[in-house]
Design a protein around this nucleic acid. Structure first.
Length: 549
RNA sequence: GCCGCCAUAGCUCAAUGGAUAGAGCAGUCCCGUCCUAAGGGAACGAUGUGGGUUCGAUUCCUGCUGGUGGCACCA
């Protein structure tokens, strides 16, 4: 690998100059005019050597001789820029045809459990779940491309007040065989009445207790039906989104474990006002209730139970949680408490959060009173896609519409660094143009169409020429994946793919590649590399890769 | 009140302490095409504010302003 060769040569040269162990960066320069790689090694070494950066750069550059590098230049305040030779670029472009293209070994031999999506039975699958799913799935895939064995985990709240709210209304209305819509509506009504009517609040709390201790046959029956129905419904959504979970955890299972853990450690979890709490203040955090005064475990205690459950059912080297950022402080407290109870597991826990989806103001008039759920958003996008595709003859229009809709929503979530809120403008997000999932998918479809046409074309020798910008961009794909997995930030891949797709579209528009039934071997090799890079990249993002659209 | 996060172009987002801050959308202008125009090209347009650290700050520290999340029995 040329990149490693450069790094090694710099390290050796620095040592010879008396600057050992300098932590330098070898990066893709901001502009291609600056070559294919740039290093700040001289700038950093200058500090240690107490010399002028430019002089150090000149000395360092003259000590570097690397095979495959056409040009080494000192530039700016003391950067050293490397330009790859045409033959090396060509080699990498061919490497980019392979199935393993973009993979690395950062997590080789490691097992990582990624928990994400986490919808609650008896409630709707909302946009937050969609966001968690997009990010979690992408992180899982990036880890797999880095050699990890990944366990996809889904933790679902099948007990708790929200269930009681839904069941309360269903019972009252004597709905014995509810549909998924009945359940959603019942939850919404129950939640409202819980807030507004004190007598309903009491009844719902009592029902909640009954659900825990399973003493009422009628409640048990309806609970079972509703739970199964919800879970089956979620499975349909996961299928559309392209997620297959390995492990399912339920609050009904973690509750008792959590209770035991908390009760067994009174020196950590103290009684206070009838409840059992963890005083986070000692650690710069805040106090949270783990067991409420009814003796029921809160989410906090259940999460402790979940940690143990995870370790038992899928012991891993790392456990990653993907949730909304409103839980950031919450997880700090829970992880702190977990660190006191089982430190050896707790230091393997990692929380990755995403922002909330907000709606552009004043753009929702057509939807007043209508909550946008994860599903309705997908349906709207599919409708939009169908309109776009009108008049085209596609083999499977329904499937394509779904692939594009999923691509659009996932890309919207994954294109920005996670943790920040996403402002969702329905009009714009549905437009499917510009900096979007469909834009990248479209470039892929074009490349695939080209490759299909090229099958019956004659392959001819190219005119000799230096590497094109797009070939030099392809070279950097593996580092983009590495960076994504290091930081667990899929947006690096999303940004890169958009740039690649843009450069391809530009090339495609400026030059006809198949002329009179002939394509050059070089153009063919580059298109193949583009197709594979786009496909691998979308694969990392968890975005579908359509054949046509 | 206490703790956390955020502030980049009219809008939505990028930028690994480094080189000329990079895209998309909207607005202006151009390309009707033959391999999928969901495309391409041109021009226009930005680091909230005051200090500090650094050879170098959108990036690190700090004051201010504005926004947002959390803070006892919800998840």
């Amino acid at each position: 690998m040329i990149r490693q060769d450069i790094e090694q040569a710099i390290t050796v040269a620095l040592t010879a100059m008396g600057a050992e162990g300098v932590a330098f960066a070898l990066e893709r320069p901001g502009s291609m005019d600056h070559g294919d790689y740039a290093t700040n090694a001289a700038l950093i070494a200058a500090k240690i050597l107490k010399k002028n950066p430019k002089e150090v750069a000149d000395e360092l550059a003259s000590n570097l001789a690397i095979e495959g590098i056409k040009k080494i230049e000192v530039a700016g305040p003391g950067f050293i820029n490397f330009t790859l030779s045409g033959s090396v670029v060509k080699e990498v472009v061919h490497e980019a045809h392979g199935k393993e293209w973009g993979n690395n070994t950062i997590y080789k031999g490691k097992k990582v459990m990624v928990e994400y999506t986490d919808p609650n039975p008896f409630k709707q699958f909302h946009i937050g779940h969609l966001m968690s799913n997009a990010i979690g799935e992408s992180i899982a895939r990036a880890l797999e491309h880095s050699g990890a064995e990944v366990l996809r985990a889904n933790y679902q709240g099948d007990v708790g007040p929200h269930v009681a709210k839904a069941l309360f209304v269903l019972l009252e209305k004597n709905i014995e065989n509810p549909t998924i819509e009945d359940i959603s509506r019942a939850y919404v009504e129950g939640a409202t009445r819980y807030e507004e009517k004190p007598e309903d609040k009491l009844a719902i709390d009592a029902l909640n207790k009954k659900i825990y201790d399973k003493t009422d046959e009628r409640v048990n029956e309806l609970y079972k039906k509703g739970r199964t129905l919800s879970l089956e419904h979620f499975e349909e959504i996961y299928k559309i989104l392209g997620t297959k979970f390995d492990l399912y955890f339920f609050e009904s299972e973690t509750a008792n474990k959590g209770l035991e853990i908390v009760r067994a450690r009174p020196e950590i979890f103290e009684a206070s006002e009838g409840a059992i709490v963890f005083h986070g203040e000692k650690y710069g955090l805040h106090t949270r209730v783990f067991i409420n005064k009814l003796g029921l475990p809160t989410y906090e205690a259940k999460d402790l139970g979940l940690i143990v459950e995870k370790e038992q059912r899928g012991q891993s080297d790392h456990y990653i949680y993907v949730t909304a950022n409103e839980q950031n402080e919450y997880f700090k407290v829970v992880f702190q408490a977990a660190g006191l109870v089982f430190p050896e597991i707790a230091n393997k826990l990692m929380h990755r959060s995403h922002g909330m989806m907000r709606f552009a103001e004043g753009k929702m008039s057509s939807r007043v009173g209508n909550v946008i759920t994860g599903e309705s958003l997908l349906m709207d996008l599919m409708g939009e896609t169908n309109t776009k595709m009108e008049g085209r003859e596609l083999k499977d229009a329904h499937n394509t519409a779904q692939q594009v809709a999923v691509g659009a929503i996932k890309y919207a979530v994954l294109k920005q660094s996670s943790g920040k809120d996403i402002v969702f403008d329905p009009e714009k997000s549905l437009s499917l143009e510009g900096d979007s999932g469909p834009y990248v998918q479209y470039a892929l479809v074009r490349a695939r169409a080209l490759l299909r046409n090229a099958r019956s074309a004659k392959v001819v020798d190219p005119e000799p020429a230096g590497p094109m910008p797009i070939e030099r961009l392809i070279v950097h794909f593996p580092q983009v994946v590495e960076r994504t997995v290091h930081e667990l930030e899929p947006h690096y891949v999303a940004t890169y793919l958009t740039e690649l797709a843009g450069m391809f579209n530009s090339w495609y528009a400026s030059e006809r590649l198949i002329v009179d039934g002939a394509i050059t071997s070089r153009a063919l090799a580059v298109v193949k590399a583009i197709e594979n890079t786009l496909a691998q990249g979308l694969q990392v993002l968890g975005i579908p890769t359509p054949e046509e659209m």
